[in-house]
Design a protein around this nucleic acid. Structure first.
Length: 259
DNA sequence: ATGACATTCCAGGAATGA
């Protein structure tokens, strides 16, 4: 069973690439972030033609998450239970479902903008709510994983130049402590292998030739519980999908399971 | 360097991203 997570940066803009990639990669379940569409605009019909069902949690131009599966999509949960509000609304940043033998979450963790910004406090609150929401399944005996754009580089080695990120979000101690808190529930960081160079970066800025210079970050993560991690046979970052015109600024992270 | 680049909504420019 092949599962993957990919921040597509607009599923509408990425649709031709998404459909082609689903077929060429043979992905069974894809966790999507930043759909940037309403639920009505989501391309469920095009995906159904390829044999995939969709669970969508989206409300407009920002955020939006989905699960796309051809191996079942049951017991769908939309939204983060107990999640905080930003500017009075619960943004669509989490969706969960049972996909065949494994329960998966697709999450889009708030960016945080700047250290000290209200969005940064919101990011930490959101991660705390995520920990509470997944704790029971994380400690359970069924395979379970939380995949998505965490907007945090777990270690200094996960950014191309630590000095460049000094004092900015994505690398601060409180953000990394929130990730450690998630791991304390029983989740482990399933680190993919890079297909080129020596760091499994998953994001490269569109500007200043960041991708060809491999100035990237590893911020798209697969956090699985012990039964999930034990079933992992392989994992890699599909950097080929970051190439060329019309690419997202994130590459898919692919994980193969033997379940 | 109030940037770069891409996307959305909406009609030139703001908002967001990391």
């Amino acid at each position: 069973m092949r599962i993957a997570t990919w921040n597509v940066n607009s599923i509408t803009a990425r649709l031709p690439r998404l459909l082609a990639w689903l077929e060429s990669s043979g992905t069974d379940v894809l966790c999507v972030q930043e759909t940037k569409c309403t639920a009505e605009q989501f391309p469920a019909a095009e995906l159904r033609e390829l044999g995939y069902e969709s669970a969508v949690h989206a409300d407009g131009r920002w955020n939006g998450v989905a699960l796309i599966s051809r191996v079942g999509l049951d017991a769908v949960v939309k939204g983060l239970p107990g999640g905080p509000e930003y500017d009075g609304v619960q943004e669509p940043r989490a969706v969960s479902a049972l996909c065949g033998p494994v329960r998966l979450w697709s999450v889009y963790v708030p960016n945080g903008r700047e250290v000290g910004h209200p969005h940064y406090a919101y990011k930490l609150q959101w991660l705390d709510a995520l920990r509470t929401a997944v704790a029971e399944d994380a400690a359970g005996s069924l395979p379970f994983a939380v995949l998505g754009d965490y907007n945090i580089a777990p270690a200094d080695d996960d950014v191309w130049d630590r000095a460049v990120f000094e004092g900015s979000t994505h690398v601060t101690e409180p953000e990394r402590a929130a990730l450690a808190g998630l791991r304390e529930t029983g989740l482990v960081d399933v680190v993919p292998r890079p297909l080129k160079y020596d760091h499994p970066y998953t994001y490269w800025d569109y500007r200043q030739l960041a991708f060809p210079k491999n100035r990237g970050m590893r911020i798209d993560l697969v956090y699985g519980n012990q039964p999930f991690a034990a079933a992992v046979k392989d994992g890699y970052v599909d950097r080929e999908e970051r190439k060329g015109k019309g690419a997202s600024d994130h590459a898919p992270v692919v994980v193969d399971l033997e379940v």
